[in-house]
Design a protein around this nucleic acid. Structure first.
Lengths: 253, 253
DNA sequence: AACAATGGGTGTAATTGGTACACAATTGTA
DNA sequence: TACAATTGTGTACCAATTACACCCATTGTT
C-alpha cells in the first residue's frame, strides 16, 4: 500500500507531466522454449496482476509514449508496437478510482477518475527484455500464456483482445522477426506460429508456404547438436519482410 | 467566425460536460447512384471541410459517444460503427488551438489544447440520413469519394486510414447491410463492392461467391422498369449476416 | 413485327492453391 | 551398425478461384 505522502507526490508529478484521462496499456508478447509469454506486473497493493501501462506526456505523440512505457519496462527501445483498440468504459478502472478515497482528497489523486486506455500490443525478443517493475508493482515478469494469473481491472479483456488481433494479423502479415533470434530453424519458427494460433500445423506445408512468401534466407549452416537430423538455419530477409508488412501476405492460415 | 461570447459560452458548457483532451472523429460512408459518399462539414470560419466529430461526456462509454455524435449529424441511431485508430499527434489540431488565441484567454477556450482523437468509421443508408450541420459549420452534406474538398486538420489522414481499413475489412467480413436498401439487385451490390475496392469485378464470379456466403435471400420479384432484362431482387439474411460478422468470411478478394 | 443493343442469369473448363500423405536423408545413441 | 527420431522433398487429390461462353429478357429502332 502506498502511503498518503507517496501518492500525493506521485499525483502532483503526474498532473504536471501527463494528460488526464488517458492511459496506455501494452500487451507484450515474447517467445521462449516453445511457449508464448506475456509480460505482467504483480501489484504491491492488490492480489491481482496487471499489464504494463503508463500515461501520455502533455506534448508527446501516443506512439512515442507507448514506446517509452515499453522501454521503461523492458529496456528495449523501438520494438514492433501496434495500436489495436481503445478501452473506454467509464467504469473500467473504478477499482482504482476508489482505492485511496479514504486517505486522500479526490482532487489530489491522479487516479481518482476515469481513464480511457489505448491498447498496444508488442512482439519482443524474450532474451533482450529485462523485465523491470514500476513503482506500484513488486514483480515484473513473463507469464506463460497457458498459466495466467488473475487480472486486475479490465486487463483480461485487453489481453484477449490483443491475442485475437494478433491471430488475425497472422493471416495477412508476416510476424516473427521481433520474436525469433537472428538465426532459427524452420521447426522453431513453426512452433511460434503454432503457439500463437493455438493449433498444430503440418510441418511440410508450413515450410513450403513460408518459403513461398520469400521473406526467409536459407543459410548454409545447420543447427548441429540436436539428437537427430540437423535442420537448416534461416534468417529473415529484412527487405522483403518489410515489404510484406506493408503489402500483406496472400491469404490466411 | 464565432464571437467571443459564443465561444466562451460553448467552452464553459463543454468543460462541464466533456472529457478534456479527447475527441471522436467519424468517417461516415454512404452509397448513392453507384457512388461512394462521405459525410462532411463545411466550416463557418475556415476554407476547408471536416469530418463529423465531437467529444466524450464525462460518464459515457466511447462507443455510445460515437453513436450519439453520429445520431446528431444524421438522425440515424444505432448504426454500424467501428473504431479503427487513434490519432494522437500533439500537433494534429494546432490549427484550432491557436485560432482564437487573440480574442479569448487560453484557459477559457475548450479548444486551446491538444486533442487525442478516436477514429470511427460508419456505414449508413444514404436515404435514411439527414445531414445536419453542427454549431461550427454552415453545411453538412455528402461528398463524392472522387471529388473530395480540401480537409482541415489531419482529417485527410483520418479519412484515408478509414478507407484502407474498410477495404481490408471487406476481405473477411460481410458488408452492405448498412449501405444498401432493404431490397437490391446483385449488380447493385456489386457496384458497392467495386466502388469500395476501386476496381472492377467479374459479374458472374461475384454472384457465385456472394451467394456462397449464404447471407443473401433471393426474393421472387425482379426489379422491373430497367431498360433490359429484369434482375432478381435480394435481401440480406440478417441472422447469417450477423454470424458472418462474428466468424468472418473465408477469404479475400 | 423483326432486329440490334444492352444487361442479366447460368454453366463449365482451366488454373491455382491448400491438404494429406509417402519416402528418402541425416544425426546421435544403443 | 542398426535404430529411433526428426528433417527435407515430392506428389496426388480436392476445393476454390478465374476466365471464359452461351442464352434470356427488355427496350428502342426500323
Amino acid at each position: 500500500m502506498l502511503t498518503k505522502e507517496e501518492l500525493e507526490e506521485f499525483s502532483a508529478e503526474a498532473h504536471a507531466l501527463y494528460l488526464d484521462y488517458i492511459s496506455i496499456d501494452c500487451v507484450v508478447f515474447g517467445f521462449h522454449e516453445g511457449q508464448m509469454k506475456v509480460l505482467m506486473l504483480k501489484s504491491k497493493n492488490e492480489a491481482g496482476w496487471q499489464l504494463p501501462g503508463g500515461f501520455v506526456q502533455k506534448v508527446e505523440p501516443i506512439d512515442v509514449a507507448a514506446n517509452r512505457i515499453l522501454a521503461t519496462r523492458t529496456g528495449i527501445d523501438d520494438v514492433f508496437l501496434q495500436q489495436f483498440r481503445v478501452f473506454g468504459d467509464p467504469d473500467r478502472n473504478r477499482q482504482h478510482n476508489e482505492m485511496y478515497s479514504d486517505i486522500i482528497a479526490k482532487e489530489k489523486n491522479f487516479f481518482a477518475h476515469r481513464f480511457i486506455s489505448i491498447g498496444y500490443y508488442a512482439l519482443v525478443d524474450f532474451f533482450n527484455a529485462i523485465p523491470t517493475p514500476d513503482e506500484f508493482s513488486e514483480i515484473c515478469t513473463w507469464r506463460d500464456l497457458n498459466d495466467l494469473p488473475p487480472f486486475l481491472l479490465d486487463h483480461e479483456l485487453i489481453f484477449t483482445t490483443a491475442l485475437d488481433t494478433l491471430r488475425l494479423q497472422l493471416s495477412y502479415q508476416p510476424i516473427g522477426y521481433n520474436l525469433m533470434p537472428k538465426e532459427f530453424t524452420m521447426p522453431e519458427l513453426q512452433k511460434l506460429y503454432e503457439t500463437i494460433l493455438g493449433k498444430k500445423l503440418d510441418r511440410r506445408n508450413f515450410q513450403r508456404r513460408m518459403l513461398g512468401f520469400g521473406i526467409l534466407n536459407k543459410l548454409p549452416q545447420t543447427r548441429k547438436g540436436g539428437a537427430h537430423k540437423a535442420p537448416y538455419l534461416y534468417s529473415f530477409d529484412l527487405e522483403n519482410y518489410q515489404a510484406a508488412l506493408k503489402e500483406g501476405l496472400k491469404s490466411g492460415w
